[in-house]
Structure formats: C-alpha cells, structure tokens
Amino acid sequence: MKILLVDDEELFRIAVAKQLAVRGHTVHEAGTGEEGLAMACDLSLDVVLLDMRLPGMNGTATLKEMKRVSPLTEIIMLTGHATVKAAMEAINMGAFDYMTKPMGINELIYKMEDAYTKKRLTKQQLKVTTTPVNNR
C-alpha cells in the first residue's frame, strides 16, 4: 500500500510511519497541505492520512484539492478536536473516514486496509466497465 501522512506534528508522523513501514507499506510524509497536495499529484497514492489542522492550507481545503487531482485515492481525516460539523463536511467531500486522535495503531491500520480495498475494487470496476466488451 502506498501511503501519505500529512500532519504538522513530526513526532506523530514518525511514530505512525514507523509502524506502517514495519508492516511493509511505502510511506511518504508531508508537514503541510501544500506539500501533501504536490505529492498526491506526483505519486500514485493509495491512502492518505490527512490532519484537519494544518498550517497554511487546512485539512478540508487539502482534501478537496486532493480528491480533485486524484479521485481514486482514499483519504482518512484525522482530528485532535472532533466536531460533528467538520466531520460531516469531510465525509460529504469524499473522505473515507474521520477519526479522532488519539487512536490505536491497529484501528488506524485496519481502517487504511479497508480504504485500500475500496480503492482497489473501485479501480477494477472502472477498468471492467470502461473496457469495450469485444476487448475483454
């Protein structure tokens, strides 16, 4: 799984990245929304963990842009301060889920695996439905 972590807390990024790398995933990191967005354009990402609270371009704006440039990438929003309104906004903008920190690493990994499966299935379905029948 190709993962991007976007969070301005370096310690959090390091801790999560380490756990994910141990499990054999490719992990990229970004400290700002702008940086994350640039990576989403360049790399073909499977799952993005995106913090709501970021310096500069905030989480919601980054989510919107990422979904525009890379619609198949599944994005899980993370927040230190949960609000119903922000959560609804994120889900309605296409976030896979909205999770509250602190969360268990297993919970996070399961969520990412589910997101990845969704991405994979959507991609396969798209491939089948867009391939002309006589080419299948």
């Binding site: 301060h81 949960a82 609000t83 119903v84 609804m88 889900i91 909205y98």
Partner: peptide, 17 residues
C-alpha cells in the same frame, strides 16, 4: 465536553457512513 463531542461525532460519522 470533549467526551460528549467525540462520541457524538463518531456516531454521526458512522451513521453517515
């Protein structure tokens, strides 16, 4: 309040999901 908010948010997110 953070407990109440977190529960309400988690439930709202999951119902919408």
């Amino acid at each position: 309040m953070s407990f109440v908010r977190t529960c309400c948010t988690a439930i709202s997110v999951n119902v919408l999901t």
